[in-house]
Amino acid sequence: MDLDFSEQIAALRSTFNDIRSVIDVDRLRAEIASLNEQATAPDLWDDTEKAQKVTSALSHRQSELARITSIESRLDDLEVLIELAIEGDDQQSADEALVELQGLQKVLGELEVQTLLDGEYDNRPAVITIRAGAGGVDAADFADMLFRMYLRWAEKHKYPVTVMDTSYAEEAGIKSATFEIDAPYAFGTLSVEAGTHRLVRMSPFGAAGKRQTSFAAVEVIPLMEEAATIEIPDNDIRVDVFRSSGPGGQSVNTTDSAVRLTHLPTGTVVSMQNEKSQIQNRAAAMRVLQSRLLILQREQEAATKKELAGTITASWGDQMRSYVLAPYQMVKDLRTDYEVNNPSNVFDGDLDGFIAAGIRWRKSHKD
């Protein structure tokens, strides 16, 4: 029975200490104490918007601290388990120790990736928009597959998701979908998913035996706090109201509660139909519009061509990831060369490997 894990344990301890230093646990505890004080104030819910911000920030930081303390506890327990296995020559404990060692290596690897997220907006919630590109009905179906993929990824991580708008295609799939993932570092994590995604498969909609290539665009922007938003003159915005619709164009609402905002100077369009009232949809749409315009403004001020949300054409020549279902099975990121041979798992939300590789790739290209 070989239980000499001393090198692996030392490596895990070293990685953990580096992460703990970057995250600054003392600062984190101080922030939690301050937010907890605000959250227990008797007049907190007099201002609903402020209350939601405080409770959301508190929840995020408590989750981050709990993750760190849990890992530290697991490392301590692992060392005890190894000692017990050695002393008792216990194969079952040895097997448990190996499984836990591998589990900790995975968790610390994921957390180490998070410490690379040091961009200005990386800690913000993410607003993701998926649009069908070239490829007709196959592209609409592919956009729907990607939509489900990100929802499943969020579900696996227990991240809250709000679907803001869905535009259904006539035959199958979606023309577009916009949704928010409210989790710590959601934007920094998911921003590497922005770009053109390409699907190659035997089309379930076309002639039998023919391979079809289709495209979908993924845009990821950070959702800004109201304090960071910019003023937009009323005469710069066109407001259209319409009825929310379901699959196949069916109406799911008997009132004109859905809202579409068009920013006339830039042509930026935001639609919202998640909320029940027109006022709520307009407020939610305005927040996303302000976030998009703020990113645009910051990029122009910095005189840089690099765009956070990206300019995505969803066609040949600029794809960042390929999903191949025929004649072989493979998903490959064309920037990092990270690939897997199980597309069904990927479409079921198994994206962490691609995201981690993307974050490391981006960091190496920034430095």
Rank of each mutant, 00 (worst) to 15 (best):
S191T: 13
I19L: 12
L308N: 05
S364Q: 15
L111F: 14
Q38L: 02
G135W: 02
Y185D: 06
R238G: 06
K210T: 13
L98W: 09
R20Q: 14
D46S: 06
N123I: 02
Q278H: 09
G103A: 08
T229M: 12
S73Q: 13
D46R: 00
A183C: 12
A303F: 11
T336H: 10
L264D: 10
I32N: 00
G88V: 03
A326G: 10
P343T: 07
L81R: 02
S245V: 07
A357L: 12
A285H: 04
D43L: 03
L28Y: 01
L351T: 04
A85K: 01
G249D: 11
L146H: 08
D350N: 10
A143F: 05
L98P: 05
A186V: 05
G246M: 13
V161W: 03
M330P: 09
S257N: 15
D90A: 04
R20I: 04
A10S: 15
L325V: 08
L12W: 06
R124M: 13
A183N: 06
L116G: 04
Q105F: 07
L44Q: 01
G188K: 00
E219C: 06
V331L: 14
V239T: 14
D234L: 03
V218Y: 01
G135A: 06
R74W: 08
V269N: 01
E96G: 08
Q114C: 10
Q62M: 13
A207E: 14
S245R: 03
L75W: 01
S277N: 08
T304N: 10
G119M: 09
N36H: 00
P343Q: 12
A258K: 02
A177F: 14
A41P: 02
D165P: 03
G206H: 15
D89N: 15
L289Y: 02
E112L: 09
D182P: 05
S167M: 07
N345A: 15
R243W: 09
L78M: 05
E226L: 14
V259I: 01
S244T: 11
I355H: 12
A283C: 09
V163P: 07
V269E: 04
V239C: 09
P204F: 05
R29G: 01
L325C: 11
V259C: 01
R287D: 13
S73E: 14
Q297V: 06
G135D: 06
L84V: 04
A326I: 04
K306G: 08
Q250H: 15
F354K: 01
G188P: 08
R321L: 08
